[in-house]
Design a binder for these strands. Sequence first.
RNA 1: GGAGAUGUAGCUCAGCUGGGAGAGCAUCUGCUUGACGUGUAGAGGGUCGCAGGUUCGAGUCCUGUCGUCUCCACCA
Length: 927
Amino acid sequence: MKELEKNYNPARIESELYDRWMSRGYFKAKPNPDKKPFTIVMPPPNITGQLHMGHALDNTMQDIIIRYRRMQGYEALWQPGTDHAAIATEVKVIDSLKKQGIEKEDLGRDGFLEKCWDWRKEYGGRIINQLHKMGSSADWDRERFTMDEGCSEAVLEVFQRLYDKGWIYKGSRIINWCPVCQTSISDAEVIHEDQEGHFWHINYPIVGEEGRFVEIATTRPETLLGDTAVAVNPEDERYQDLVGKMLELPLTGRQIPVIADSYVDKEFGTGCVKITPAHDPNDFEVGKRHNLTEINILHDDATINLPGSKYDGMDRYEARKAMVADLDALGLLVKVVPHTHAVGTHDRCGTTVEPMIKPQWFVKMSEMIKPAVEAVKNGEITLLPQRMEKNFFSWTDNIRDWCISRQLWWGHRIPAYYCADCGEMTVQKTRPEKCPKCGSTHLNQDEDTLDTWFSSALWPFSTLGWPKQTEDLKYFYPTDVLVTGYDIIFFWVIRMIFSGYEQTGTKPFHTVLFHGLIRDSLGRKMSKSLGNGIDPLDVIDKYGADALRMTLVTGNAPGSDMRFYWERVENSRNFANKIWNASRFIMMNLEKASPEQLRAYDVAFGLKPCPANSGDADGTCISCSSVAPLTPADKWILSRVNELIREVTSNLDKYELGIALQKVYDFVWEEFCDWYIEMVKARLWNDDDETHTAAIWTLKTVLVQSLKLLHPYIPFITEEIFCNLLDEGETITVSQMHPDGTVTESESTERSIMISSWPVYREAWNFAKEETEVETIKDAVRAIRTVRTSMNVPPSKKAHVYVVSENAELLDIFERSRAFFAMLGYASEVSLQADKTGIPENAVSTVIAQAAIYIPLAELVDVAKEIERLEKEEARLVGELARVNGMLNNERFVSKAPAAKIAEEREKKQKYEQMMEQVKERLAQLR
RNA sequence: GGAGAUGUAGCUCAGCUGGGAGAGCAUCUGCUUGACGUGUAGAGGGUCGCAGGUUCGAGUCCUGUCGUCUCCACCA
């Protein structure tokens, strides 16, 4: 047995322990028919990324769940990997090239991709190493990458399947275009933010009617150049006569018609809408209905594309300015009104996106989404917290086709091939030898790549080997729970669900556990621009990974954001130190009992089978040798820890991670450290005490159970203590639970908490009577402490304590717990008696149910103060009795409330009446 | 414009299916008790946003209302 240092020092042990776990392969999982699988796929962090608080939270939650299941005896797989993050990476690589004066185009496609792979090699592993520091118990040998061979194979397979089914199509549609990133982006990548802008009211002259105009209002005057109509509502009386007439489009010399379309809102603006089919999604629809020409007026970098015009080549905003000035000069600008409106921006770079018509690839969503919607509706997939379902449906109900092509180089290239000779397009996983139509071998692959989320959508099964029917896939799929932030429900979660059903015929996971954002102490998002981010690695350096992990899951309800406070990390660190010192104390006392004696208790209390019965060659049947009985205090704490196991297990099964931890925290600190350890000290210091070994065994047992309950949360410190506690070579009580709930002895002596079991709830450890007894003593101790504190008596001043009660059974309780009652009650001597014989007149007194306690502290007694205190107590009891009587005298309560509740209240009433009697009697004496 | 969340002790938040208001931090007062001052024993502090309703009983369920936040949405 090693002696522990006085304070816990995480830095010293964390990396050492992690290396040990890795080298012993504790995190590895493989198909095992004797066990049930439990699988989590890690949301793949971007290769451009560094560990931030969001990752820390996400991975802590997953690690807690996977460690819990592993300890329960499941074959627990946590499948890790990283994401190629198409745009993010491409932008970063371009930036770094620019610093060297190199443009992407200079390198060519292959040269550029080489740089991307270099980037991946250099930075892709960084975040993985950072996750190791968190203690993440993923099976790192299985680390995958969205662009590795297998995942790419899955992507191509899915693309072809959907294409063959007619669910992937190529079409010229209006899409969101980012002029800075020079690529299309999906609807989900557009953020609508309110911006202060203007409403420009412009007159369009009516052809052939000198001096008559149609007034339109627009927030983007530059799009005027692409107008091909003006629309009014067909019901709008004001403009009936205009429909069909032609207008002169200012600045262009073109003429455009007035059309009627119900899309126009009569009430809004002037009721006349300019229609620019090439640069507005609504106008695009209107244009299709009325067969309007689509005039593209923008280059890809959002400069004006109108050869021959003075605006050609101008930036979109420059052109806006120039055009407004020109319209004003022509007298066609009616007015400019300030107007705030929603502007679409690119979530990566913040650039205002331009709707443009481009040939792009789309996934048809209307059919594919159906099984996903059904699964969430019928509970096959559970979203936690449940309110996330609303979010989910709001998206699925309004789903539009998914634009999946990106004009980027970094990503999975679209497997479409065009014949240079006849123009035929062929879509297939592998490059065709020749054109199926004309036989030409001049084939060019589509330049575009796929949306990053196309590959992440396959992550739960592509990482397990799909499309091959691997053993891993058969065993570990469908996975169990997905843990992620609510911010990517649309990007990722939904797409995984529909892809799972479509490609594998089943759900990718049965539960999604959402968490919120970690904000700074002022409630702001942590961001680089604000500089308010807190680096998890800093926290680990200062306080240890356990403290960080604990902080992240304490007092945090699922799906809601939480603020980060250093004080909370300190509190977590303090808890670690607390359990460290409790262990230190226990280990200091452990050697006072022999391993054989402790083993005998293990057998007697069901932690170990009887060697005789199990045919152990040891020779001695220790189960038959008697052990000294446990005291009420021992049984009390065992009973408490047992109940704790039941509750925590149930909480964890429901993914209530914060609640479960809070319960263990309270138990360890208050019940175990503040009460039980204090209760036991007298016995430990008294070598003649025959319950000595019982105390040591109980201490060790409760500690071990607590460590196991805590291990998923704070793996490092619990492992360190566990290893020190259970000496190498010593056969100690570590059992392993099989999935069917049976407990067997573990074979290995070189074991760690990693492979030891999650503790099992034991009927035999329920000691209701002892629980009540100990609660009684605790009440008495608390009452004594309160009295003494109110009179400023230091603990060093011991006093004779008299417990007076006519209830002999009650006195027996005190008799049974006399030793620790005396110690905790600062008693020099304890007298238990039925009347007040021998108690000095001027003793201080206090009252518990059915008993009065007297403490002669003659020189300290202040009668006035004593009366004051007793009157306060009396007032409290009057209140309590009023409440109880109010209920019990209410006929409707008595007739309708559950019987158990009524009995409970009756019991309380009795207790309060007895206490009241005692208080009154004492007051009468003093007055 | 829709939808959701939230309002509980000075601060940050827990409070599961309705049955006597909790934690951490902060504040005040004791403690050189042989694990821990990163500790320990006590204390003060809340009409659970407001108003109704259901119920024997509401922080918890329903309705309305006020405040704060978030998400979604093509009103030019």
